[in-house]
Amino acid sequence: MFRRIISAGAVLALAIGLTACTSADETESALTVYSGRSEALIQPLIDSFEETTGIDVIVRYAGSAELAAQLLEEGNNSPADVFFAQDAGALGAIAKAGMLKTMNADLLALVPAEYSAEDGSWVGVSGRVRTLNYNPEKVTTLPGSVFDLAESRWRGRIGIAPTNASFQAFVTAMRVVEGERKTLQWLEAMKQNAVIFEKNSAILEAVETGQVDAGLINHYYWYARGKELGFDALTSKLAQFESGDVGNLINSAGVGLVSDSSAAVVFVEYLLSDFAQAYFADATSEYPLISGIDADVDLVPLTQIPGPKVDLSDLDGLEQTLDLIRQAGLM
Protein backbone atom coordinates (compact mmCIF):
# COMPACT_ATOMS: atom_id res chain seq x y z
CA MET A 1 0.00 0.00 0.00
CA PHE A 2 2.71 2.40 0.91
CA ARG A 3 4.45 1.80 -2.34
CA ARG A 4 1.22 2.74 -4.03
CA ILE A 5 1.02 5.97 -2.02
CA ILE A 6 4.56 6.84 -2.96
CA SER A 7 4.00 6.30 -6.66
CA ALA A 8 0.64 8.07 -6.55
CA GLY A 9 2.40 10.97 -4.86
CA ALA A 10 5.06 11.06 -7.53
CA VAL A 11 2.50 10.99 -10.32
CA LEU A 12 0.52 13.74 -8.61
CA ALA A 13 3.62 15.88 -8.21
CA LEU A 14 4.53 15.51 -11.84
CA ALA A 15 0.98 16.22 -12.98
CA ILE A 16 0.86 19.38 -10.94
CA GLY A 17 4.21 20.37 -12.32
CA LEU A 18 2.95 19.83 -15.84
CA THR A 19 -0.16 21.94 -15.46
CA ALA A 20 1.90 24.67 -13.87
CA CYS A 21 4.28 24.85 -16.78
CA THR A 22 1.76 25.01 -19.60
CA SER A 23 1.64 28.76 -19.13
CA ALA A 24 5.14 28.97 -20.56
CA ASP A 25 4.06 27.39 -23.84
CA GLU A 26 2.50 30.63 -25.02
CA THR A 27 5.99 31.97 -25.59
CA GLU A 28 6.19 30.60 -29.15
CA SER A 29 4.87 33.60 -31.08
CA ALA A 30 5.10 36.28 -28.43
CA LEU A 31 7.74 38.91 -27.84
CA THR A 32 9.89 38.22 -24.76
CA VAL A 33 11.22 41.23 -22.88
CA TYR A 34 13.75 41.02 -20.04
CA SER A 35 13.03 44.09 -17.98
CA GLY A 36 15.43 45.42 -15.37
CA ARG A 37 12.87 48.12 -14.67
CA SER A 38 10.10 47.40 -12.19
CA GLU A 39 6.75 45.82 -13.00
CA ALA A 40 4.79 48.64 -11.36
CA LEU A 41 6.43 51.05 -13.78
CA ILE A 42 6.57 49.05 -16.99
CA GLN A 43 3.46 46.85 -17.01
CA PRO A 44 0.95 49.66 -17.79
CA LEU A 45 3.11 50.56 -20.77
CA ILE A 46 3.26 46.92 -21.90
CA ASP A 47 -0.53 46.60 -21.62
CA SER A 48 -1.11 49.60 -23.86
CA PHE A 49 1.56 48.34 -26.28
CA GLU A 50 -0.25 44.99 -26.57
CA GLU A 51 -3.53 46.79 -27.14
CA THR A 52 -2.12 49.14 -29.78
CA THR A 53 -0.05 46.65 -31.77
CA GLY A 54 -1.75 43.30 -31.11
CA ILE A 55 1.66 41.81 -30.26
CA ASP A 56 1.69 39.51 -27.21
CA VAL A 57 4.44 40.36 -24.78
CA ILE A 58 5.96 38.12 -22.12
CA VAL A 59 7.94 40.13 -19.60
CA ARG A 60 10.51 38.83 -17.17
CA TYR A 61 11.08 41.31 -14.38
CA ALA A 62 14.26 41.25 -12.25
CA GLY A 63 17.23 43.46 -11.43
CA SER A 64 19.22 44.68 -14.46
CA ALA A 65 22.39 42.99 -13.23
CA GLU A 66 20.61 39.69 -12.50
CA LEU A 67 19.12 39.72 -15.97
CA ALA A 68 22.49 40.55 -17.50
CA ALA A 69 24.03 37.60 -15.65
CA GLN A 70 21.16 35.43 -16.82
CA LEU A 71 21.56 36.57 -20.44
CA LEU A 72 25.27 35.82 -20.30
CA GLU A 73 24.53 32.30 -19.01
CA GLU A 74 21.85 31.70 -21.62
CA GLY A 75 24.08 32.83 -24.45
CA ASN A 76 22.66 32.32 -27.93
CA ASN A 77 19.83 30.16 -26.58
CA SER A 78 18.26 33.02 -24.68
CA PRO A 79 14.49 33.21 -25.03
CA ALA A 80 14.77 37.02 -24.74
CA ASP A 81 14.11 39.31 -27.70
CA VAL A 82 14.66 42.60 -25.91
CA PHE A 83 16.74 43.66 -22.92
CA PHE A 84 15.41 46.77 -21.20
CA ALA A 85 17.95 47.80 -18.57
CA GLN A 86 18.11 50.27 -15.74
CA ASP A 87 21.55 51.59 -16.74
CA ALA A 88 24.22 51.75 -19.42
CA GLY A 89 26.59 49.41 -17.57
CA ALA A 90 24.36 46.31 -17.81
CA LEU A 91 23.68 46.97 -21.50
CA GLY A 92 27.38 47.55 -22.11
CA ALA A 93 28.29 44.19 -20.58
CA ILE A 94 25.79 42.35 -22.80
CA ALA A 95 26.90 44.34 -25.85
CA LYS A 96 30.51 43.44 -25.08
CA ALA A 97 29.60 39.74 -25.10
CA GLY A 98 28.32 40.30 -28.65
CA MET A 99 24.74 39.53 -27.69
CA LEU A 100 23.07 42.72 -28.95
CA LYS A 101 22.07 43.37 -32.58
CA THR A 102 22.96 46.76 -34.02
CA MET A 103 20.05 49.15 -33.68
CA ASN A 104 18.39 50.68 -36.74
CA ALA A 105 19.84 54.16 -37.52
CA ASP A 106 16.33 55.72 -37.62
CA LEU A 107 15.76 54.68 -34.03
CA LEU A 108 19.19 55.86 -32.88
CA ALA A 109 18.54 59.23 -34.51
CA LEU A 110 15.53 59.89 -32.23
CA VAL A 111 17.76 60.25 -29.17
CA PRO A 112 20.76 62.59 -28.74
CA ALA A 113 23.85 60.49 -29.42
CA GLU A 114 25.35 61.02 -25.93
CA TYR A 115 22.54 58.94 -24.34
CA SER A 116 23.03 55.81 -26.49
CA ALA A 117 25.89 53.40 -27.27
CA GLU A 118 28.40 54.84 -29.71
CA ASP A 119 28.38 51.62 -31.77
CA GLY A 120 24.59 51.60 -31.93
CA SER A 121 24.19 48.40 -29.89
CA TRP A 122 21.58 49.98 -27.63
CA VAL A 123 19.52 53.15 -27.47
CA GLY A 124 18.77 55.36 -24.45
CA VAL A 125 15.13 55.55 -23.36
CA SER A 126 15.17 57.86 -20.34
CA GLY A 127 17.76 59.93 -18.48
CA ARG A 128 18.72 60.06 -14.80
CA VAL A 129 21.14 62.29 -12.94
CA ARG A 130 23.44 61.53 -9.98
CA THR A 131 22.88 64.03 -7.20
CA LEU A 132 23.84 64.84 -3.64
CA ASN A 133 20.89 64.21 -1.34
CA TYR A 134 21.43 66.16 1.92
CA ASN A 135 19.82 67.28 5.13
CA PRO A 136 19.99 71.12 5.11
CA GLU A 137 20.06 71.25 8.93
CA LYS A 138 23.21 69.15 9.06
CA VAL A 139 24.96 70.27 5.87
CA THR A 140 25.29 74.06 5.67
CA THR A 141 28.13 74.41 3.16
CA LEU A 142 27.63 72.17 0.17
CA PRO A 143 30.67 70.30 -1.18
CA GLY A 144 31.82 71.79 -4.50
CA SER A 145 33.03 68.47 -5.84
CA VAL A 146 32.27 64.84 -5.07
CA PHE A 147 35.99 64.62 -4.20
CA ASP A 148 35.38 66.94 -1.22
CA LEU A 149 33.49 64.08 0.40
CA ALA A 150 36.90 62.42 0.93
CA GLU A 151 37.76 65.02 3.59
CA SER A 152 37.77 63.80 7.17
CA ARG A 153 34.95 66.14 8.22
CA TRP A 154 32.60 63.82 6.31
CA ARG A 155 33.51 60.80 8.43
CA GLY A 156 30.37 58.72 9.15
CA ARG A 157 28.09 61.29 7.55
CA ILE A 158 27.69 60.20 3.93
CA GLY A 159 25.63 57.27 2.58
CA ILE A 160 26.66 55.30 -0.52
CA ALA A 161 25.52 52.02 -2.14
CA PRO A 162 28.66 50.37 -3.60
CA THR A 163 26.78 47.29 -4.86
CA ASN A 164 24.21 49.39 -6.69
CA ALA A 165 24.54 49.60 -10.46
CA SER A 166 24.03 53.39 -10.59
CA PHE A 167 26.83 53.95 -8.08
CA GLN A 168 29.11 51.62 -10.03
CA ALA A 169 28.34 53.44 -13.28
CA PHE A 170 29.28 56.67 -11.55
CA VAL A 171 32.58 55.19 -10.33
CA THR A 172 33.25 53.95 -13.84
CA ALA A 173 32.74 57.49 -15.10
CA MET A 174 35.10 58.78 -12.40
CA ARG A 175 37.70 56.26 -13.53
CA VAL A 176 37.31 57.28 -17.16
CA VAL A 177 37.44 61.03 -16.42
CA GLU A 178 39.84 61.27 -13.46
CA GLY A 179 41.95 58.13 -13.80
CA GLU A 180 42.39 54.97 -11.73
CA ARG A 181 44.64 56.39 -9.02
CA LYS A 182 42.46 59.30 -8.07
CA THR A 183 39.38 57.05 -8.12
CA LEU A 184 40.99 54.47 -5.85
CA GLN A 185 42.04 57.20 -3.41
CA TRP A 186 38.48 58.51 -3.34
CA LEU A 187 37.05 55.03 -2.79
CA GLU A 188 39.53 54.38 0.03
CA ALA A 189 38.45 57.64 1.66
CA MET A 190 34.85 56.48 1.28
CA LYS A 191 35.73 53.26 3.10
CA GLN A 192 36.60 55.57 6.03
CA ASN A 193 33.83 58.14 5.65
CA ALA A 194 30.80 56.39 4.23
CA VAL A 195 27.94 54.38 5.68
CA ILE A 196 27.15 51.52 3.31
CA PHE A 197 23.63 50.83 2.02
CA GLU A 198 22.20 48.31 -0.44
CA LYS A 199 20.36 50.79 -2.63
CA ASN A 200 19.44 54.40 -3.38
CA SER A 201 16.04 54.28 -1.70
CA ALA A 202 17.63 53.12 1.56
CA ILE A 203 20.07 56.05 1.44
CA LEU A 204 17.22 58.52 0.90
CA GLU A 205 15.36 56.95 3.82
CA ALA A 206 18.47 57.31 6.00
CA VAL A 207 19.01 60.97 5.04
CA GLU A 208 15.32 61.69 5.68
CA THR A 209 15.38 60.06 9.12
CA GLY A 210 18.68 61.69 10.09
CA GLN A 211 20.70 58.46 10.17
CA VAL A 212 23.24 60.08 7.82
CA ASP A 213 23.67 63.72 6.80
CA ALA A 214 23.94 63.21 3.04
CA GLY A 215 24.04 60.54 0.37
CA LEU A 216 24.78 59.96 -3.31
CA ILE A 217 21.59 58.95 -5.16
CA ASN A 218 19.78 59.21 -8.52
CA HIS A 219 17.53 62.26 -8.76
CA TYR A 220 14.17 60.50 -9.27
CA TYR A 221 14.08 58.72 -5.90
CA TRP A 222 13.77 62.09 -4.22
CA TYR A 223 11.12 63.32 -6.66
CA ALA A 224 9.12 60.10 -6.29
CA ARG A 225 9.09 60.51 -2.51
CA GLY A 226 8.16 64.19 -2.89
CA LYS A 227 5.22 63.32 -5.13
CA GLU A 228 4.05 60.63 -2.72
CA LEU A 229 4.32 62.60 0.53
CA GLY A 230 4.34 66.18 -0.76
CA PHE A 231 7.58 68.07 -1.34
CA ASP A 232 6.97 70.14 1.81
CA ALA A 233 7.05 66.96 3.90
CA LEU A 234 10.63 66.15 2.83
CA THR A 235 13.44 66.98 5.21
CA SER A 236 16.17 66.48 2.67
CA LYS A 237 17.11 68.39 -0.48
CA LEU A 238 18.95 67.68 -3.71
CA ALA A 239 22.04 69.50 -4.96
CA GLN A 240 24.42 69.17 -7.88
CA PHE A 241 28.18 69.50 -7.61
CA GLU A 242 30.02 72.22 -9.53
CA SER A 243 29.92 72.25 -13.30
CA GLY A 244 31.51 69.29 -15.06
CA ASP A 245 32.00 67.35 -11.80
CA VAL A 246 31.76 63.60 -12.28
CA GLY A 247 29.36 63.47 -9.32
CA ASN A 248 26.74 64.94 -11.67
CA LEU A 249 26.87 62.00 -14.10
CA ILE A 250 23.94 61.83 -16.49
CA ASN A 251 23.19 58.16 -17.23
CA SER A 252 20.44 56.54 -19.27
CA ALA A 253 18.15 53.57 -18.97
CA GLY A 254 18.16 51.92 -22.35
CA VAL A 255 17.07 49.06 -24.50
CA GLY A 256 18.93 46.57 -26.72
CA LEU A 257 17.82 43.94 -29.25
CA VAL A 258 18.81 40.38 -28.33
CA SER A 259 17.07 38.69 -31.27
CA ASP A 260 16.24 39.61 -34.87
CA SER A 261 12.50 39.65 -34.15
CA SER A 262 10.71 42.44 -36.04
CA ALA A 263 8.27 42.80 -33.15
CA ALA A 264 11.25 43.76 -30.99
CA VAL A 265 11.96 46.73 -33.23
CA VAL A 266 8.29 47.78 -32.99
CA PHE A 267 8.66 47.61 -29.20
CA VAL A 268 11.72 49.87 -29.19
CA GLU A 269 9.87 52.32 -31.48
CA TYR A 270 7.04 52.30 -28.97
CA LEU A 271 9.36 53.11 -26.05
CA LEU A 272 10.63 56.10 -28.02
CA SER A 273 7.13 57.27 -28.98
CA ASP A 274 5.71 60.54 -27.61
CA PHE A 275 3.23 58.55 -25.52
CA ALA A 276 5.81 56.35 -23.76
CA GLN A 277 8.28 59.19 -23.27
CA ALA A 278 5.60 61.39 -21.69
CA TYR A 279 4.67 58.41 -19.49
CA PHE A 280 8.26 58.07 -18.22
CA ALA A 281 8.48 61.78 -17.53
CA ASP A 282 5.24 61.73 -15.59
CA ALA A 283 5.40 58.38 -13.77
CA THR A 284 9.07 58.26 -12.78
CA SER A 285 10.28 61.86 -12.91
CA GLU A 286 13.02 60.71 -15.25
CA TYR A 287 14.11 62.83 -18.20
CA PRO A 288 12.49 61.99 -21.55
CA LEU A 289 15.15 61.76 -24.25
CA ILE A 290 13.32 62.44 -27.54
CA SER A 291 12.80 66.04 -28.61
CA GLY A 292 9.43 67.66 -28.08
CA ILE A 293 8.54 65.95 -24.79
CA ASP A 294 9.08 68.04 -21.66
CA ALA A 295 10.42 66.76 -18.38
CA ASP A 296 8.37 66.97 -15.18
CA VAL A 297 7.77 70.64 -14.29
CA ASP A 298 9.45 70.27 -10.90
CA LEU A 299 12.68 69.03 -12.49
CA VAL A 300 15.76 71.10 -13.27
CA PRO A 301 15.93 70.86 -17.11
CA LEU A 302 18.46 68.31 -18.30
CA THR A 303 20.29 70.98 -20.29
CA GLN A 304 20.95 72.88 -17.06
CA ILE A 305 22.51 69.91 -15.25
CA PRO A 306 26.27 70.54 -15.23
CA GLY A 307 27.20 66.96 -16.15
CA PRO A 308 30.71 65.68 -16.84
CA LYS A 309 31.93 64.98 -20.37
CA VAL A 310 31.60 61.18 -20.53
CA ASP A 311 30.82 58.79 -23.34
CA LEU A 312 28.20 56.38 -21.92
CA SER A 313 29.60 53.57 -24.08
CA ASP A 314 32.75 53.80 -21.97
CA LEU A 315 30.75 52.79 -18.89
CA ASP A 316 30.87 49.13 -19.93
CA GLY A 317 34.34 48.73 -18.38
CA LEU A 318 32.70 47.56 -15.22
CA GLU A 319 35.26 44.91 -14.33
CA GLN A 320 38.05 47.41 -13.64
CA THR A 321 35.62 49.49 -11.61
CA LEU A 322 34.68 46.51 -9.50
CA ASP A 323 38.35 45.71 -9.00
CA LEU A 324 38.84 49.21 -7.57
CA ILE A 325 35.73 49.06 -5.38
CA ARG A 326 36.90 45.71 -4.03
CA GLN A 327 40.48 46.91 -3.61
CA ALA A 328 39.14 49.75 -1.48
CA GLY A 329 37.29 47.14 0.60
CA LEU A 330 33.85 48.55 -0.12
CA MET A 331 32.45 45.19 -1.26
Binding site: E66, A69, E319
Partner: peptide
Protein backbone atom coordinates in the same frame (compact mmCIF):
# COMPACT_ATOMS: atom_id res chain seq x y z
CA UNK B 1 24.04 44.52 6.40
CA UNK B 2 26.50 41.93 7.72
CA UNK B 3 29.14 40.67 5.29
CA UNK B 4 29.44 36.92 4.81
CA UNK B 5 30.60 34.78 1.92
CA UNK B 6 27.11 34.29 0.60
CA UNK B 7 26.40 38.00 0.50
CA UNK B 8 29.72 38.64 -1.25
CA UNK B 9 28.87 35.98 -3.82
CA UNK B 10 25.46 37.49 -4.42
CA UNK B 11 26.95 40.93 -4.79
CA UNK B 12 29.50 39.68 -7.29
CA UNK B 13 26.69 38.36 -9.44
CA UNK B 14 24.19 41.10 -8.90
CA UNK B 15 26.50 44.04 -9.02
CA UNK B 16 28.79 42.97 -11.75
CA UNK B 17 27.84 39.98 -13.86
CA UNK B 18 31.17 38.83 -12.47
Amino acid sequence: RYDTFTRAIYNSYRGSFD
